[in-house]
Design a protein around this nucleic acid. Structure first.
Lengths: 200, 200
DNA sequence: ACCGGGCCGTGACAGTTGTCATCGGCCTAC
DNA sequence: GTAGGCCGATGACAACTGTCACGGCCCGGT
């Protein structure tokens, strides 16, 4: 019997997967939780064979939760994500994640992936793997990535500067340089591109 | 036997719901599709008893698809949405939609809602209904809403002006006025707020 | 020892954005 | 009929943004 932990902040899909996987003869849903922190706690408590973690969760995201769980519990992790960004796959594999599937995967296939992973194999969605292999590494410097990250939810340059303890001019320079490298005209587009590539 | 059409662009949740609802003795999934246009076509072809439409879909959104379907086919529509914005509920009810549930609803409850709606009753999630009743009507003028809508995916004032065939100064004025009414400092925040309220 | 490169900052400049005052035209309500 | 509201536009102004040039610091490679 494979004991599974499911973490997804969207109740409808989580409950649907719980019911559906529960119907499989060899799978048992040990716990279902809402966010990354709960996932870590539940993994420690139930020590499941496989953890199915949504990437997009409040608090800890899926990869961060995976890192913490794998440090503390002998289990295997599958990351599920809506937007399969190549850089995130790299992050996930770096965190010793065993499986990586987009939500464009039919629910029926999940059971098979869970069995594969429970048996010690790895499973990465072929499309994402191909994109990640083809996609280049970020041409951006660490600091440029920092300002883009901070710029994702900051309205003004001054706010970014405050958050990073930098001078506004410095922030403008990094943004300008990043925008140049990415071939876009505004910092918002730059943040957008960097996010889609999974660089931030 | 209640025949159901499911439209959701996220394969995993759609396939999960198809499987789960298919297990109910009195429910049969007649079709499952990816976007609004396909939903309209499939509804005409299969004439299902109930259409379960995701709000967030490429092409036609759920409410637009509902309008077209209800004009052409004798059926009932349930809108499912991730972000339950009060204004959208108003739009949906205006389109003669019979049910409105957020994705924070457990999948198990969906079958009950479908039966209710198939029996001619209406079902609106109580939380959303309360929010919609309590929430105020938009304080914004039609033109202000136009510029905010156009501003959602335009980078510069000039682009908004071009799209609406207005002078840039006029656009700035509407934006400024809307920003004042909404108590925010940038047009992006204003668009954000208006969107969350379901005004655009 | 000498680059080169990333890092942090300044100053200056043009272009964009947000604010304000003001105008005329068109409706609607009183 | 007139006062008030929304619509479209203009001009002026301050603030913010993006670009460029330039300075200094520190570190790794040669």
């Amino acid at each position: 019997m494979i004991r599974v932990l499911i973490a997804d902040d969207e109740v409808m899909i989580r409950s649907a997967l719980e019911s559906l996987l529960g119907l499989e003869e060899d799978i048992e849903v040990a716990a279902g939780v809402d966010d990354g922190h709960q996932a870590v706690a539940a993994a420690r408590e139930h020590a499941p064979d496989v953890c199915l973690l949504d990437l997009e969760m409040p608090g800890l995201d899926g990869v961060e939760a995976a890192e913490q769980i794998l440090r503390q519990v002998a289990t295997r992790v599958i990351i599920v994500t809506r937007h399969a960004r190549p850089g995130v796959l790299r992050r996930a594999l770096g965190a010793r994640v065993s499986g990586f599937v987009p939500k464009s995967t039919p629910a029926e296939d999940l059971a098979r992936v869970i069995r594969d992973v429970a048996a010690g194999r790895r499973y990465v969605d072929p499309d994402i793997a191909a994109t990640a292999l083809g996609g280049e590494r970020s041409p951006l410097t660490d600091r440029e990535l920092d300002v883009l990250r901070a710029g994702r939810d900051a309205a003004t340059v001054q706010q970014i500067a405050d958050r990073l303890h930098l001078a506004p001019g410095t922030v403008r320079n990094y943004l300008s340089s990043a925008m140049g490298k990415l071939g876009v005209g505004t910092r918002r587009e730059a943040s957008q591109v960097a996010w889609e590539q999974g660089w931030i």
